[in-house]
Design a protein around this nucleic acid. Structure first.
Ligand code: ATP
Length: 696
DNA sequence: AAGAACCAACTTTTT
DNA sequence: GTTGGTTCTT
């Protein structure tokens, strides 16, 4: 029975071969759950003759989907990538593109990100003359999300006690989205449920598309996602899900460790298979992880077998206490250099943290020590203002109902359009903003009229050429509205970075032009992008939040900021449930490691750059102290020239010859982490972020 | 309506 | 250390 079953243990084989009823694979970290899914796809195709495009496999991240696709393509010698190995959100977006008209949307609907959604809420609160301190967009958006994720409007009644207008806001928010032909992230899922429940024939059609459905990381799915699965499976047996309630870390997005146990209730005759062998970590790491999770409460605990491994004992986990956050970062950098000397590669190493702002110090230390790194967190590329500005123009051209995009671009660059002009335009609104603008045109002031001419030209140009020639279109847009000028005057301090970002966007457009993708598809992809997606294969240390490390593994893992208030987060102090999640998060962090774990903490940490606060070691430390070795911090050396001179890395040093997308070739004059002063051949001296520089 | 100048309140985690 | 908001001036 073929090589597909090779490299699987007995329980994994059983899981791959089981088809008699719905299957739930419950197992701890690193036990080969994902491998079960991948091999089951191969088996379904190769041994049972099911076309890969009739198999739906859902992963948590795009990156996991990509890797799974690659494995399957290689193992089965496929000519084309499987279409339906994807995430819940991408799947939903794909379904809704086909079916939008059936639920009252145009098929050019846009996806509103968090920022768009919050701005909409802010507008509503303003228009309704409500107390904007009470109805903070953050809070309101959270509540609305909770309602949508729990398929339960009684949540609304609960909050209505404190916030009497929350119901009205919710309603106006939904109206506002539909008005703009837009969906938020939750709608993406919710509308699939709506579509399927209201249209039996459409549901049938999609059921018939798939012969088998597999889901990875099931513990982090929420009720709507579960509902989508139910609707797609119908009363068939064709589903396998794998998961680990101990690794549930997205309860704030509607997941719950208990959910995975109720899978049985919704899918009758569910068979449960448990895996108990860990293939990832050394004994000590595994035991420490087991210990962490053994302190957790919750009835799901006994449902998962305790893991064992026959790997060697390995080394103790290390705990290193440093005086300050700067020294913590310096230690990590120093220790990485030591590991490199021992033969590890930069890409063997990950630095994990609970909160993304901790990466700042680490980045600085890495630049100083010439350690190649990649930060997988923080402001994502497509959330940057300059990127969103350009995209908003494109969005608006294709979907002129998009109110948030319209408001963003109508006075960007400044065209003399403020509140009162906007009101005039709004009065003419019938069909969409483009029409409103045209119809109100004659009533506007001379200056505005003049300025709007370019605006119309640009929008018309995008409409005409945007889909075929996105790169050229974007460049035309950039020139016509003098966007560079705008960036320079608005961001005198860092406009270079921003221009470079836009340049990078153009490159991405050229890419999609080559691959024959539509702009529409591109916009959708970017809104569903995840931090993990950008992880490079390059030989660099990966720096990320614990959340972003889901499903990944590294020989060496540093966990920074292991302090009460950071890990666990201070927000979890009063809430038992949340503290439980912090514990699971800590479990996830440790179980990413194969060979070495370093926990680091700073006795004093500066908040917001100035005041130093004394910290307390994380409460999780004492749970694993029997596996911990406390290291004294090494004496600090002031300079690192000797180190960087001997190491062969791609880091940038004073004197390095470098290249920049926009400014061309130059020489590094001075390092000011994370920036560098560079003298360029053509444009002279500039100060910019080193990440935009390539050593040559 | 735009821009300067000043202030406040942040930072979980993210599709 | 940033981002967004407010207030004042032009
Ligand atoms: N039967 C096996 N024999 C040897 N190695 C295996 C086997 N199954 C899985 N592995 C390896 O163990 C590691 C963890 O596997 P996998 O990612 O599938 O686990 P997982 O249970 O999905 O982990 P997590 O819960 O952390 O996402 C991988 O490096 C994988 O290649």
């Amino acid at each position: 029975m073929s090589d597909i079953l090779e490299g699987l243990n007995e329980s994994q084989k059983e899981a791959v071969l089981y088809f008699s009823s719905p299957l739930l694979v419950l197992a701890g970290a690193g036990s080969g759950k994902t491998r079960v899914i991948t091999h089951k796809i191969m088996f379904l195709n190769k041994e049972l003759g099911i076309p890969v495009n009739r198999i739906l496999a859902i992963t948590f991240t795009n990156k996991a989907a990509k890797e799974m696709k690659e494995r399957v393509v290689n193992a089965l010698n496929l000519e084309e990538e499987p279409q339906w190995i994807t995430t819940f959100h991408s799947l939903s977006a794909k379904i809704l593109r086909y079916e939008a008209e059936n639920i009252g949307y145009g098929k050019d609907f846009v996806i509103y990100d968090e920022e768009d959604s919050k701005k909409l809420i802010k507008d509503i609160v303003e228009e309704s003359n409500l107390d904007k301190d009470l109805y903070k967009p953050d809070r309101v958006k959270n509540i609305i999300s909770q309602i949508k994720q729990n398929l339960d409007e009684s949540v609304l009644d609960f909050y209505a006690m404190q916030l009497p207008h929350i119901k009205a806001i919710y309603q106006k928010y939904q109206e506002g989205l539909i008005f703009s032909n837009a969906m938020d992230f939750d709608d993406l899922l919710l509308n699939v449920v709506k579509l399927f429940t209201e249209n039996e024939d459409i549901k049938q059609k999609w059921q018939n598309k798939f012969d088998y459905i597999l889901v990875d990381e099931y513990q982090d799915t929420n009720k709507i996602q579960h509902q989508i699965l139910k609707l797609l499976v119908g009363n068939r047996d064709c589903i396998t899900v794998v998961g680990d309630p101990q690794q549930c870390i997205y309860t704030w997005r509607g997941a719950h460790p208990e959910n995975i146990l109720s899978f049985e209730e919704d899918f009758p005759n569910t068979k449960i298979i448990k895996l108990e062998r860990n293939y990832r970590s050394t004994q000590k790491i595994l035991e420490a992880a087991n210990k962490v999770i053994s302190h957790s409460k919750g009835r799901w605990k006994e449902k998962v077998l305790k893991l064992w491994t026959d790997k060697n004992k390995g080394e103790d986990l290390k705990l290193v206490k440093l005086e300050s956050d700067k020294q913590e970062a310096a230690f990590i950098a120093y220790q990485i250099k030591e590991l490199i000397k021992q033969g590890y590669k930069y890409s063997d190493i990950a630095v994990l943290m609970r909160m993304s702002f901790l990466s700042r110090n680490i980045e600085e230390a890495f630049v100083r020590m010439s350690i190649p790194y990649q930060i997988i967190a923080g402001l994502k590329f497509y959330e940057r203002a300059e990127i969103k500005d350009i995209l908003a123009y494109l969005r608006f051209a294709f979907n002129p109902k998009d109110t948030q995009a319209f408001k963003r671009i109508i006075n960007l660059p400044s065209r003399g359009i403020g509140k009162s002009t906007l009101n005039k335009i709004q009065k003419s609104y019938v069909e969409d903003w483009y029409q409103a603008l045209k119809d109100s045109y004659e009533t506007l002031s001379k200056k505005v009229k003049y300025n709007l001419q370019t605006f119309f030209e640009v929008i018309d140009f995008i409409k005409k050429y945007g889909n075929e020639k996105p790169a050229e279109t974007a460049k035309y847009l950039y020139d016509s509205i003098d966007y560079e000028e705008y960036l320079i005057s608005k961001y005198p301090k860092d406009y270079e970075d921003r221009i470079a970002n836009v340049q990078e966007l153009f490159t991405a457009f050229e890419e999609i032009e080559k691959r024959g993708k539509t702009l529409q598809e591109f916009l959708e992809e970017t809104s569903l992008e995840q931090a993990q997606d950008n992880i490079e294969d390059s030989n660099s240390v990966k720096v990320m939040t614990v959340h972003a490390s889901k499903g990944l593994e590294y020989p060496v893992v540093f966990i920074a900021g292991v302090e009460d208030g950071i890990f666990p987060s201070g927000r979890a102090f009063e809430d038992v449930e949340q503290m439980e999640e912090e514990r699971r998060l800590f479990y996830v962090a440790i179980t990413r490691a194969k060979e070495h774990v370093y926990l680091t903490l700073a006795k004093y940490r500066s908040s917001f750059g100035n005041s130093f606060n004394e910290t307390k070691p994380s409460r999780f430390i004492k749970d694993i102290k029997e596996y911990l070795k406390v290291l004294s911090s090494k004496p600090k050396k002031k300079t690192d020239n000797s180190l960087s001179a001997t190491s062969t890395n791609t880091g940038i040093r004073v004197g390095s010859l470098v290249k920049h997308e926009v400014f061309g070739k130059g020489v590094v004059k001075e390092l000011k982490p994370p920036k560098a002063k560079v003298i360029f051949e053509k444009v002279g001296e500039k100060e910019l972020l080193t990440k935009f520089l390539k050593a040559i």
